[in-house]
């Protein structure tokens, strides 16, 4: 059995921005030759005067977004996550976060969504880079429901926010009634181990729990979705009543969800066996998103194996 596949989160992002923009004339979208990748053609047709195109110029994109936001506009700045968060990092840090202009930065085709286009197009650094910037929340929806709720919340979020989306059709994770930025969702309880996952990796953790059931192991899944602020209360509680914890993310092993959890839990004195599954610090293998995930063990089988090792160690 597998999760019901929905639309891509980007499509839901686009629909929801249109819905919000219909109700709030302050909402603007700004793009850098990225409306196609951002699935924003429908927005452009519906609100031709409320989409601003700056061309292939991500630094300019973020600077202009900050300026627009400073006048009260509610700006969604949409660009591939790789370029948005690497190239325009200083604009994000100074013009948006430090100056406290509530821009919603939308990183599209994130992680290894661009697969074989290679490392220039991957964003495996964005969690690390952005976590270190004060006054910037980071939200990574895992399915259509989380996406819709996150985008609705973003429109009225009064501080800088980064939303990160992949581009594949997303499976439905279930439990559609409890989304709140900064509050992790327990998708599946489990007595034995727990997967702490984010974004497009959550579904793989859910699948892994089914494989583990075959070994009579009862494992749970937490969809973190908000990397910052991190829901440390839920994390600590869940960690304390688990025999093993595996974090899962579509990011470098350096500086992402896993390290954030490790830092928090060890300082809280939680000694549950712990393992980070992420993209290792190496030259990333060529392949589709799926192939890269499988290669690095971000697959149902790989995750089940990691959990099993940890539980049996």
């Amino acid at each position: 059995m597998s999760e019901k596949i929905g639309k891509s989160n980007l499509d839901v992002f686009s629909e929801t921005v249109i819905e919000m923009a219909g109700k709030d004339s302050d909402i603007l979208v700004i793009t850098s030759d990225s409306r196609g990748s951002g699935k924003l053609w429908p927005f452009a047709h519906r609100f031709p005067d409320r989409i601003i195109e700056v061309g292939i110029a991500e630094q300019n994109l973020v600077g202009i977004a900050a300026g627009l936001a400073s006048t009260g506009k509610k700006v969604f700045a949409v660009s591939p996550a790789s370029f948005l968060t690497a190239r325009a990092l200083e604009q994000i840090k100074n013009d948006v976060a430090y100056s406290d202009h509530p821009v919603t930065l939308v990183g599209i085709s994130a992680g290894v969504s661009y697969g074989p286009l290679g490392s220039t197009h991957h964003s495996l650094h964005d969690f690390a880079a952005l976590r270190a910037i004060n006054n910037l929340d980071i939200v990574v929806p895992g399915d259509n429901y989380e996406t819709r709720e996150a985008v609705r919340a973003a429109a009225d979020w009064d501080t800088p926010l980064y939303l990160r989306f992949g581009k594949r059709p997303a499976p439905h994770l279930g439990g559609d009634d409890d989304f709140q930025i900064g509050k992790a969702r327990i998708l599946k309880p489990g007595e034995d181990g727990k997967f702490i996952a984010i974004g497009e990796t959550v579904v793989r953790a859910l699948e892994a729990t089914r494989i583990l059931e075959e070994s009579n192991l009862d494992c749970g899944v937490i969809s973190v979705h908000s990397l910052k602020p991190l829901d440390i209360e839920t994390l600590e509680k869940e960690a304390r009543n688990s025999r093993a914890l595996v974090t899962v993310e579509e990011h470098s092993v350096c500086g992402g969800l896993g390290e954030a959890c490790a830092a928090f839990l060890s300082q809280a004195g939680v000694a549950t066996p712990f393992k980070i599954v992420a993209i290792p610090d190496e030259y990333t293998v060529t392949g589709s998103q799926q192939e890269i995930f499988d290669h690095y063990g971000i697959s149902a089988q790989g995750l089940a194996g990691t959990m099993l090792d940890l539980l049996e160690h």
Partner: peptide
């Protein structure tokens, strides 16, 4: 091109003989 494990990524890299610089992010 673009296959699993191939050096022929969808943008130039120095793993391919003859290529001087990894590019793909414009500018």
């Amino acid at each position: 091109l673009c296959r699993y494990h191939s050096d022929l990524v969808g943008h130039p890299t120095r793993k391919v003989p003859g290529i001087e610089q990894n590019t793909g992010a414009l500018g």
